[in-house]
């Protein structure tokens, strides 16, 4: 049977592999950190020459937040120390607040059309939904699987709390692309790319997981 205990144990082992695979998550994270740093360096001369407007400050803020929170995450992954509740709340509330701020600034400071606000809301919810897709994986672990693997479930829980996400790169995609849009002077395009990129990323990763596990319904 597809939903047999042995099969579900394999799913849990696959989650453990994803969470503990430094090669996979670490590499993709570091790639996106580069994506965050390189544009800042490239944009700097343009800003100095006066070709870039004040959006630069906001994008710098986004990149700095991304890098600062990422550093903390990497330390926690190394030490396998779970994030405290307050840390996680701060992380996600600041992510959402920053993205909403981008929308509000674009709409009411620069006078962009209302769609930009809608895109900001979509980007903020996309970032959180991508994180929540990982939470949902662990929240819905069947009781008999938890009982059959008491040690592994604890390990998976610790790993998830340490890593703060199942897939690894969703925050970099959403916040990074929004900041990139601001940097290049097309905030609405940046937000749209963040929404599309973020959703495609977590949906693809989730579906790949279920397909690989042979469980998509």
């Amino acid at each position: 049977m597809k939903q047999g205990l042995a099969y579900q144990n394999l799913l849990l082992a696959e989650i453990h592999r994803i969470l503990s695979n430094k090669g996979e998550s670490g590499l993709s994270e570091s790639r996106f950190y580069l994506l965050g740093i390189i544009p800042v360096l490239l944009a700097l001369p343009f800003y100095v020459l006066g070709y870039l407007p004040a959006e630069f400050a906001l994008s710098i803020l986004l990149f700095c937040w991304l890098l600062a929170s990422g550093r903390k995450s990497r330390r926690m992954i190394r030490t396998r120390e779970g994030k405290p509740a307050s840390g996680l709340i701060l992380l996600h509330s600041v992510d959402a607040a920053l993205l909403f701020s981008v929308g509000l600034v674009c709409r009411y400071y620069w006078g962009l059309p209302p769609i930009v606000m809608l895109l900001a809301v979509a980007a903020a919810t996309t970032g959180y939904l991508a994180y929540y897709s990982g939470v949902a994986f662990l929240k819905s672990v069947p009781a008999r699987v938890r009982l059959a693997n008491p040690r592994l479930i604890v390990e998976v829980d610790h790993l998830f709390l340490a890593k703060g996400s199942m897939w690894g790169a969703e925050r970099m995609i959403v916040i990074g692309l929004t900041a990139l849009g601001l940097l290049t002077g097309w905030p609405e395009l940046g937000l749209a790319a963040a929404v599309i990129g973020g959703n495609v990323y977590w949906i693809t990763r989730s579906l790949n997981f279920w397909r690989k596990a042979g469980c998509s319904e």
């Binding site: 509740a85 709340i89 959180y128 929540y132 939470v135 662990l138 672990v141 938890r146 998830f160 709390l161």
Partner: peptide, 11 residues
Amino acid sequence: RTAMDSLLVSG
């Protein structure tokens, strides 16, 4: 949701 779910995660 973060306070409620992330504290417990897999339960």
